[in-house]
Design a protein around this nucleic acid. Sequence first.
DNA 1: AAGTCATGCAACCGCCTCATG
DNA 2: TCATGAGGCGGTTGCATGACT
Length: 322
Amino acid sequence: MGRSPCCEKEHTNKGAWTKEEDDRLVNYIKSHGEGCWRSLPKAAGLQRCGKSCRLRWINYLRPDLKRGNFTEEEDELIINLHSLLGNKWSLIAAKLPGRTDNEIKNYWNTHIKRKLLSRGIDPQTHRVLNSSTTIATPTANTIATTKIAVSNNYYNNDNKDSNNNNTFQLINIRGSTLHFGLGSNLEHEFSTSTRSTDAKLYCTTFPTIRTSNISEDHSNSSSVVTEEEGYKEINLELSISLPTSSKINSANHEIIMKNQEPQKYMTYQVFGTTTRVPVFTKGGSVCLCHNNLEFQNNGSQCNCYTPMTTTAAKVCNSGKLL
DNA sequence: AAGTCATGCAACCGCCTCATG
DNA sequence: TCATGAGGCGGTTGCATGACT
C-alpha cells in the first residue's frame, strides 16, 4: 500500500500563485509561524497542497530573501562549493544567505554551467576539459591518486609542484576522513600548521601522521587506523590557505570586497577536480574540510574536527551550521 | 507583424530521511 | 524493530517572455 497523498489533489489549486494566495500565506505565517505544512493550507484558507505552500514561502515569500542578480563573488562561491559538494543545492544555499536552493540550482543550470564551459572547465567534474591531468589508475593499495597543484598563472611560473611532492595516494575513506599514503619525508611535508614550502599551501592534518609502528590513536577524529603495507597513513583534512585571498566574514557569510577586484586567480585541484578562486589582497584561507566549507579569517586554520556523520555533521565544533 | 525558437525560472513530482509512536 | 508521515531535497516540467527570422 502506498503512502497517502499529502493533500486532496482534486481540491487544490496548481500553477502560479495569485497575489491573494500569497497574502493569505504570508499573513498566516506571520501570525502562526512556519511549520505544520500539511495543516497550514486549510488553516490559512488556501486551496493548495502543503508542500506547495512550503515551497512558495521558502523560495519566494520569505522576507529574508535576497532578490536580484548574483554577484561575481557569489558565482565563485557557488562554483567552489559545487566542486566540493556536487548538486547538493541545499548545502550550497546554506552558505549563501538570502539565496534558496531552487534559485541556485536554476542559476547553475542557466548561467554557471555556461560560464564554466567558456572557461574550458567541465561543470560537472570541475576538471579542465581535455586536460591531461587524470586520476591515476588505482593500484592494490590505492583507491585513487589526487594531486594538489597551484597553477602557474598565480605563482608566475614559480610552481614547484612536481610529480612527487604533491601527489598523494588516496588509500581509504572513513567517514569524513581521508587517508593518504605518501612518499618519504612525510612529516616534513605535512604536519599540523606546517606550511608546504613547495605548493605554498597550508596543509593541516588531523590527527598526526601515522606510520605502521605507531599504534596509539591520539586523534580527535573518529578514524580507525589500519595499516596499508608500503604506505604511511595520515588523516588529512586539508585546509588550503591562499597567501593573499579574499577577506570573508565567516560570521555572516558575507564577502567583504570593498571595491577590491580580483587581480589574479588561483587554481587548485583536489581529488581530480579543478577549482579556480579569485585572489585578493587581504589575507584569508579557504577551508576544504569535508565538514566545514568555510572561509577563514586571518589565514587561520580550520578548527572544525567534527567527524561527518549523518546527523552530527550538521553542526561542527565551532558552532557553525553546515 | 506574426511565427518560431531559446531561455529563465517558478512550481511540481517523486523519492529520501528522520522523528515519532 | 518497524511502520508511519511530515518535511526536505533534487530532478524535471511547463509557462512566460524575449530574441530572432
